[in-house]
Design a protein around this nucleic acid. Structure first.
Lengths: 153, 153
DNA sequence: CTTGCCTTTGACGTCAATGTGAGGTTTTAG
DNA sequence: CTAAAACCTCACATTGACGTCAAAGGCAAG
């Protein structure tokens, strides 16, 4: 499998794949003419790398983690890294949840039919502004929190 | 309140505050000599801005959202933005959860007392590699998923 | 007045994961 | 054989939220 194929199957650009290789995250065989060749398993590997990138892990950290994936063994230092990154992610999820709650409050306020700060009654029928949701929070739509804390000015 | 005080109370740098102002996210009065002055309420506002930045919203988007916070009213376009950002955040949380699950699988594998790929028995007593967790997933520690999918090579 | 800390504007630096093009070789399809 | 498509390396550009330094002015205390 050459680089274009891998890029297609893994859903990334060829530039990204060369970058991963440059960072030591991905290896490749070379044909006599110098073109990269990958095994099928590379697709899964690239997807894993992408997952880590998406989660905000920097390439240097991923580089330290991948050997642990390959060997199934984690040195104490790698283990510490594993744990701290897990905590980072958990904290990031909490931050996201907090921001989402803030947005929910704004949505509630904008949607709340109280005339004092709601000339938003011109709206026709509300498109159900969300459809696929039940990922983490099963909450119906938005938190029912007092609005005072949001009205800054 | 001058800029240093606000920066301290809101937990950001003065550079960030000037940047926020430059982006139109934050306003300030000026003393005759040109120094910025803020009301107490600016602390909360900066915290909200920071919360949005932390959640990955770009400044341009925050700029569109803030007036909605101020007036308590959302135009249809702002409402759409609110909803789409909410969905973005939810998706990001799912991505984080997936990456965390991957880390959990790695932790499990590294920790699993099977000799085939586990010379990790040299470890003394495991520090409970996580403490504050129950943010979203009440899961005990790590998923108990088959290891085959992880062993790439 | 002067010492020291805070503030001002302006502008360049950073970091990281790519995008983008140049200029050239290899593979593939007809 | 030939043209298109895919690949190669090298290297500069991008994006965004700041960091950082420079040169200067403001403001309280001694």
């Amino acid at each position: 499998m050459r680089i274009g194929e891998l890029a297609h199957q893994a859903g990334v650009s060829t530039r990204a794949l060369r970058y991963y290789e440059e960072q030591g995250l991905l290896t490749s065989e070379r044909t006599p003419s110098g073109q990269r060749t990958y095994p099928e398993s590379a697709v899964e590997r690239v997807r894993l790398i992408q997952q880590f990138f998406t989660a905000g892990l920097p390439s240097r950290t991923i580089l330290q983690l991948l050997p642990c994936v390959d060997t199934g063994h984690a040195s104490p230092k790698a283990f510490e890294l594993l744990a701290s990154e897990r905590n980072r992610i958990t904290a990031a999820m909490a931050d996201l949840a907090a921001a989402r709650d803030a947005l929910d409050r704004m949505i509630d306020i904008a949607n709340h039919p109280t005339p004092e700060h709601c000339p938003a009654l011109r709206e026709p029928a509300w498109a159900p502004y969300n459809a696929a949701d039940a990922t983490t929070a099963p909450g119906p739509t938005a938190a029912l929190v007092a609005s005072a804390t949001l009205i800054t000015r």
